[in-house]
Structures are given as structure tokens and as C-alpha cells.
Write a protein that binds this DNA or RNA. Structure first.
Lengths: 165, 165
DNA sequence: GATATTAACGCAACTTTGTTGCAATAATGG
DNA sequence: CCATTATTGCAACAAAGTTGCGTTAATATC
């Protein structure tokens, strides 16, 4: 069941990899940091906008200032825990857990409900294309560094054929 | 020589495909429309932000209102002549000629000079991945509609090893 | 060619999203 | 416990894009 609607569970254990990045960056363990991290860990393939994250936090009773959240998300992205990218449908940023392994998974966004998640099933071909592109770029004298693959469409929940009610 | 710095040439002939789309959408042939179209046709693989387009127009003596340009770019995107996508480095839109054929050309953006262009050379393996992704999505119950592939890196002009001066 | 219709334009005001300055607070190390 | 300094909250700011509305000018029709 992809794109679950249930709210993410409590903080959860912080994976060693992430813990290490936080420490290396000298980030403190504050209430906000743990809550936000918990948000992303509860749905590792999903992405959240600042507004969505704020709403989730508020919904669970955490009264985090909007500026604080902006800065926290920035910080987490800066130290490599989160990955930030532009939302293609609005002038906003979207954040998701950074790939800890080599996994370069394409992002899928539903144009109806605007939820996003990573397509880990397709990370293999994506990797292949990435290296192909890097080769092509190199032959032209350019230097490729980061490949970003995203697919827009309609998710299972929003496909008209499937009433699901 | 990719990413030429020279200003695009004059209006140029409007390809039939584009002309058809303009007419189908009932767009009028105004000074602004022709000028903007000329901008993109002069560098078919490149993309322009609103600000860049406005600067180019102003530079060649055309005093187009900024709101008018916003609306014109929207209109051209709406009727399928241009393609709009979010700029990954700033909260802005970027416009480029829409692919007329089936080709899904990845976009390359130089993180140093922020110029962008389409990598037409790499469209073959990319095309394969697109249909592959659609299959994967379908098997999960989702419906893929549009694939967007972008690469960030450093372009030949900005690679430190190559002085080029 | 004159006239009516309406897309396109220009201006000003507004909205959304994100950022900055700064004083107050609270993790963390000793 | 105390000092240090990352983090927070507030308010004010800034950039990019949008909306309302009266005016201009393509296009169609006579």
C-alpha cells in the first residue's frame, strides 16, 4: 500500500548513518530536530514540503515556529541528512531523506493529490542512465555531478478507475 | 560549442509545428509574441527564466512589461509551445521549447554559471528508461505521464582545468 | 477601409514563499 | 553548576509570481 495516509509514528530509532551525519555536523538533539527527523523516518520514501511538515508537527501538538522549521530543514539538508529539491508544481522546496546507500531512485509525484515518494524498484535502471549521462557529458567536456529523475502521473489512490471508497 | 554566449539572432522563421500550436490556441501575432518566440528559437536547446528573457528583450530595445511577459510565457506553455519547469537552484520557473518529437531530452544545468541546455545526444537510452519507468509504475497501480530528467554539474566553460581565456 | 469584438497589454496592488537581524532560550562540555 | 554557543521566536524584509481592471491593438466582419 503505497502513499499511506496514516500519520507517521513516533520518533523511531535514528539510523546510525543519520546519527553520524548529525554528529559530524555538530547538530544538537533538540525537540524540533527529533520530531522532524521522526517525520521523515516514519515514511522514508516520501517527501515533505515545509508547509506539510509544519502541519504534521502542529497536528501532533508540537508548536514549532515556521522560521525555525525553515532553518532546521535547511540545516538537515546542509549536513546531508535530507535532500532538497524544487517542487515542479509550485514555487516551493520539497525535502526527503537523502539516499544513504548508492541508491538513486526516481521520484514519483501524483498530480492529483501531490504526494510524492521514491520509486526504489527502479533504482537500478536509473543508475544505468545516470552513468550513461555522465559519460555523454564527459565526451562533451562537461562534468556531471547529480542526476535527478522524476515522474509525474496519477497514483493508485487517485486513478479514476479505482473508486477505493 | 555548447552554451554560446552570443545573443540570439533576429526572430527567425517560426517552424510549422509551433505555428500550428499557436493558431490552434488562437494566439495573436503580437510584437511580444514574436520577440519571445525568436528568443527561444535562436537557441533551441537552451532554457530561459523570466528574468533572463526580460533582460534579453530589454537589451534589444523591446520594452515589454514584466507582467505581460509572465502571462505570455504562461500562455506559450499552456498551448504546448514552451515547457515550464521549476529551477532547482532558485524559486523560479524556467522555460524552454517543448520537445516537438517524442524525444525526452535530459536537461543539463551548470551549477557554476547556471546556464542550461538540453542533451539531445543522450535521448536514446533515456527514452528506454522512460517507458521502463512507466511499466514499473503500472505494475504498482500508478499511472506515469511525464518523465523529467535533469543533470547538474559543471559545464565545459566552467570546469577549472580549462582556462578558455 | 471603417467598425466591432476581444485577446493582449500595462499599471498598481497583492499573495506566497522564503530569508535576515536580533534578543531570548536551552543543549552541551567542562 | 557554569560558560559557551547552537537553536529558537518574533518581526520585518525580500523575491517571484499573480490578480483586477481599465486601455490598446489584432483580427474578423461588414
Amino acid at each position: 500500500m503505497p502513499l499511506s495516509t496514516r500519520p507517521p509514528k513516533e520518533p523511531a530509532l535514528v539510523p546510525a548513518e543519520i546519527q553520524a551525519r548529525l554528529e559530524r555536523a555538530g547538530l544538537r538533539r533538540t525537540l524540533a530536530t527529533r520530531a522532524v527527523l521522526g517525520l521523515f523516518l516514519a515514511n522514508p520514501q516520501g517527501t515533505l514540503s515545509h508547509a506539510q511538515a509544519l502541519a504534521s508537527l502542529t497536528a501532533r501538538g508540537l508548536d514549532i515556529n515556521r522560521v525555525t522549521l525553515y532553518r532546521l530543514l535547511d540545516r538537515l539538508a546542509a549536513c546531508g541528512v535530507l535532500q532538497r529539491h524544487a517542487n515542479d508544481d509550485a514555487r516551493t522546496w520539497r525535502y526527503g531523506l537523502a539516499d544513504t546507500d548508492e541508491g538513486l531512485a526516481p521520484r514519483f509525484e501524483c498530480d492529483a493529490c501531490h504526494r510524492q515518494f521514491r520509486l526504489t524498484e527502479a533504482s537500478e535502471p536509473t543508475r544505468a542512465v545516470a552513468s550513461d549521462l555522465f559519460r555523454t557529458l564527459a565526451s562533451l567536456g562537461h562534468q556531471g555531478q547529480r542526476v535527478d529523475l522524476s515522474i509525474h502521473g496519477t497514483c493508485a489512490n487517485c486513478v479514476p478507475q479505482e473508486p477505493s471508497a
